[in-house]
Computed example of a mutant assay.
Amino acid sequence: MKRPQGFEHRPAPLPPAVPGRPARPGASGSKSTPKATPKSAEPSSRDAAQTEPIRTQPGEPVPAPALLAPVFPLRRTDEAGETANPQPAPGLSPGFTPVLTPAAARSRLRGARRARKQYEREEVRRFTGRSRRRRTTWLVSLGTLAALIAFVVAGAYSPLMALRTIEVVGANRVPADQVRAALEGQLGTPLPLVDLTAVRDDLSRFRLIRSYAVESRPPGTIVVRIVEREPIGVIPSDSGFDLVDAAGVVIESGDEPQDGYPAITAEVGSSGFTAAAAVVESLPAGIRTQLTTVAAATKDDVTLTLDGGARVVWGSVEESDYKAVVLGALMVEHPVGEVDEYDVSSPDSAVLR
Rank of each mutant, 00 (worst) to 15 (best):
Ala263Glu: 12
Ala263Met: 13
Ala263His: 11
Ile264Gly: 11
Ile264Phe: 10
Ile264Cys: 09
Thr265Asn: 15
Thr265Met: 07
Thr265Gln: 14
Ala266Asp: 07
Ala266Trp: 01
Glu267Pro: 05
Glu267Arg: 14
Glu267Ile: 12
Val268Gln: 09
Val268Arg: 09
Ser270Pro: 14
Ser271Trp: 00
Ser271Thr: 12
Gly272Leu: 04
Gly272Lys: 00
Phe273His: 13
Phe273Val: 02
Thr274Asn: 11
Thr274His: 05
Thr274Trp: 01
Thr274Met: 03
Ala275Glu: 02
Ala275Phe: 07
Ala277Cys: 08
Ala277Glu: 07
Ala277Lys: 01
Ala277Gly: 09
Ala277Pro: 08
Ala278Ile: 03
Ala278Leu: 02
Ala278Glu: 13
Val279Asp: 06
Val279His: 08
Glu281Val: 08
Glu281Tyr: 01
Pro284Cys: 05
Ala285Lys: 07
Ala285Asn: 12
Ala285Arg: 13
Ala285Cys: 00
Gly286Asp: 10
Gly286Phe: 04
Gly286Met: 00
Gly286Ser: 13
Ile287Tyr: 01
Arg288Gln: 14
Arg288Asn: 12
Thr289Arg: 12
Thr289His: 08
Gln290Ser: 14
Thr292Phe: 06
Thr292Lys: 11
Thr292Ile: 09
Thr293Gln: 00
Thr293Met: 11
Val294Gly: 02
Ala295Cys: 01
Ala295Lys: 03
Ala296Gln: 02
Ala297Thr: 14
Ala297His: 14
Thr298Ile: 08
Thr298His: 15
Lys299Phe: 11
Asp301Lys: 05
Thr303Lys: 09
Thr303Leu: 07
Thr303Gln: 12
Thr303Gly: 08
Leu304Val: 10
Leu304Cys: 15
Leu304Arg: 08
Thr305Trp: 04
Thr305Pro: 05
Thr305Ile: 06
Leu306Glu: 09
Asp307Val: 15
Gly308Cys: 06
Gly308Asn: 07
Gly308Lys: 01
Gly308Ala: 07
Gly309Met: 04
Gly309Cys: 01
Arg311Gln: 14
Arg311Ile: 03
Val313Thr: 15
Gly315Trp: 05
Gly315Leu: 03
Ser316Cys: 11
Ser316Lys: 00
Val317Trp: 06
Val317Cys: 04
Val317Tyr: 08
Glu318His: 05
Glu318Ser: 13
Glu318Gly: 11
Glu319Pro: 04
Ser320Thr: 06
Ser320Asn: 11
Ser320Pro: 00
Asp321Met: 06
Asp321Gln: 13
Asp321His: 02
Tyr322Asn: 13
Lys323Asn: 02
Ala324Gln: 00
Ala324Asp: 01
Val325Phe: 06
Val325Ala: 15
Val326Gly: 10
Leu327Lys: 06
Gly328Ile: 02
Gly328Cys: 03
Ala329Asn: 15
Ala329Thr: 12
Ala329Ile: 00
Leu330Gln: 09
Leu330Phe: 06
Leu330Gly: 05
Leu330Lys: 05
Met331Phe: 09
Met331Ser: 02
Val332Ser: 12
Glu333Thr: 12
Glu333Gln: 15
Glu333Phe: 03
Pro335Ala: 08
Gly337Thr: 14
Gly337Met: 02
